[in-house]
Design a protein around this nucleic acid. Structure first.
Lengths: 354, 354
DNA sequence: CTGAAAGCGCTTACAG
DNA sequence: CTGAAAGCGCTTACAG
């Protein structure tokens, strides 16, 4: 009864011996390379099955001096927000871990407020020698154009931070935006009175393109579904600090029964700045997004009450590792990996890992 | 000016060539093995410096068929709590990732309520061939005895879940208990009235030994420092479900102005069960610990309001990886790695990763 | 104290 | 379509 026993560590040599071929031929079928007669191919494949052959990745990477090139396509860090520093840090962390395996990473950063720069960088990637891509599909149409070309060339790509469904990405790694809005609403409900009104603030140059803000708003509203009249909202498209604060000031002046403010992105710091300088920090419950230095400063002072975070660093890290698992280990990759919805307060921010 | 340039990928061969010795000798000094004359040793060391030699770990692990044995010493999953499932899962995840590198992991589980079983398992580890240890130092004195023996044998050990300072562990990976209590107090303050009283509940067979409960209580009290009289507390040493519920029932009956309950470990489910079956779930704010199935069930129903979690799975994972980094890559390891203090609610539990 | 040689499990030209 | 041989960068006996 020795038939079905899996030899523990049988390698190419053993396979070759059993198939009565050379290991070069075994290698050819393992990698699905041309130049093997169907007959011997089938024979070898069967033996691989029987032996439950697991390639030794160490030996593989050592022998093949081939280098894999990954490309990153994400927004550059800007004066408006340092958010994208974190994914970049995660990417670098992953890079250091897998450098040994012959992975090189090229970074292509675009301007969050410019579709043209996105397109330009995506073209540059297509011109380069690239085996896999990690990208933030910030601009929907432009991203689809890009990924269609990647599909043709059979280059895998991973989405982070926001998703475009049905685009055959290797996977999506990032927040469930709807639920993060929903959670924010839940936290607020704990802390305010039934009669208090709530203000939602969206700040973005391109609210329609940066659709993820709207997803959060939807989630937030869904929680309060049955009495939506408590909720006011403003969209601010002029994104410099002064413009944002001015608009917020006007709105609050007109709506004195607002007691809680929900800012759908990291620009919560602008609202915090306004509340602090006008001495009204204690009058509002303030909830916003992202573990950024300025936001944390306001959290510390009690101006911001809760920050919702979604591990941007881990998004970068896991995104790279997904490409690595897929390309180096041919391992299966989870299609969607939602980040946890983390609640950061004055008391736990010190222990938060982005 | 070619002197100080670092050859990109110089290996043992190049070192040997420059030192005019064989690569075997180079290998000897790289691994600090005996049998090299001081003179050639110094010469080789200098060249290693100059070249900024980085060993190729792939080749190393491939050539050396040496196997590293790690031992795990943590509590067994028990009827009282499934908490230790999570670290075990993290350990297994790490195991799968580094198996390729020749790491084997042996598990030694002890009974949380029995010092004797801890001692027995630690002795078994000492008898085995072991290169590194991951342990939960649940019993302080017994742990110190054990680690003293490990120190003699020069075997590195990592603490998880609770720390014993100054024991020269390779590192500690786990919660900052004081701060997690402090955070709990903060959450409560948001949600209750100034006149409401708060009940702290400690449940453990060995409250003195399981000192970590007391650390959380300290942190909690510290937050309310200035009006401690709001706080009541009970220690429950009989840990079967019925005994716990009975004691809680009595205490609440005697103190009708209690509006919030803080349970310092996963036994919050017992309190939740009591509140639910007596139809008083809505009368209390209930905060406790750990992402366990039963706790989540009560969170979903709104009986438990907040759960504090500290990534037990990640503790296991990171603990193993720390040993791996130290032993395989000789990489430096952070002495203390506090886990984030995560706040879990009805709205975000689905996205939590332990 | 030192070195020559074989081998880890693969891949890569090269030759036929 | 197939195989023999060299090599990836190390480590491990073994011999001297």
């Amino acid at each position: 009864m020795k038939s079905n026993q899996q030899e523990p560590n049988a390698g190419v040599k053993e396979i070759a011996r059993r198939a009565k071929v050379s290991i070069a031929t075994v290698d050819r079928v393992i990698h699905n390379r041309a130049g093997v007669s169907p007959k011997t191919k089938i024979k070898i494949e069967r033996i691989i099955q029987e032996l439950n052959y697991q390639p030794n990745i160490l030996a593989r990477r050592l022998a093949s001096r081939k280098i894999l090139n990954f490309a990153i396509l994400i927004p550059a860090v800007s004066g408006e927000t340092a958010f994208w520093e974190a994914p970049l840090a995660g990417i670098q962390q992953a890079e250091e871990e897998i450098r040994q395996f012959g992975i090189k990473i090229d970074r292509y950063l675009f301007d969050m407020n410019s579709k043209a720069s996105f397109v330009k960088q995506s073209k540059a990637i297509l011109k380069s020698k690239v085996d896999g891509i990690l990208m933030a599909p910030s601009f929907i149409e432009e991203s689809i154009t890009f990924t269609n070309q990647l599909k043709e060339k059979n280059i895998p790509y991973v989405f982070i931070n926001s998703d475009i469904p049905n685009q055959e990405s290797l996977c999506y790694i990032g927040p469930d935006l709807f639920h993060s809005g929903y959670l924010s609403a839940h936290l607020m409900k704990y802390c305010i009175q039934p009669k208090d009104k709530i203000l939602i603030v969206n700040v973005s140059h391109e609210i329609e393109n940066h659709h993820h803000l709207l997803r959060k708003e939807e989630g937030f509203r869904a929680y309060f579904a049955n009495n939506d009249k408590r909720i006011l909202k403003i969209d601010i498209r002029q994104t410099n600090d002064r413009a944002v604060e001015k608009k917020v000031a006007e709105t609050l002046a007109e709506n004195t029964n607002v007691k809680a403010i929900f800012v759908t992105n990291s620009r919560v710091s602008n609202v915090a700045h306004y509340l602090e300088t006008t001495g009204r920090a204690d009058d509002y419950l303030l909830v916003g997004y992202d573990f950024l230095k300025e936001n944390i400063a306001y959290l510390k002072k009690g101006v911001i009450d809760f920050l919702i975070c979604q591990k941007p660093q881990e998004q970068g890290y896991k995104g790279i590792m997904a490409l690595y698992q897929h390309l180096v280990h041919s391992a299966p990759v989870e299609k969607v990996s939602f980040m946890p919805i983390d609640i950061i307060t004055k008391e736990n921010y010190e222990f938060y890992r982005n």
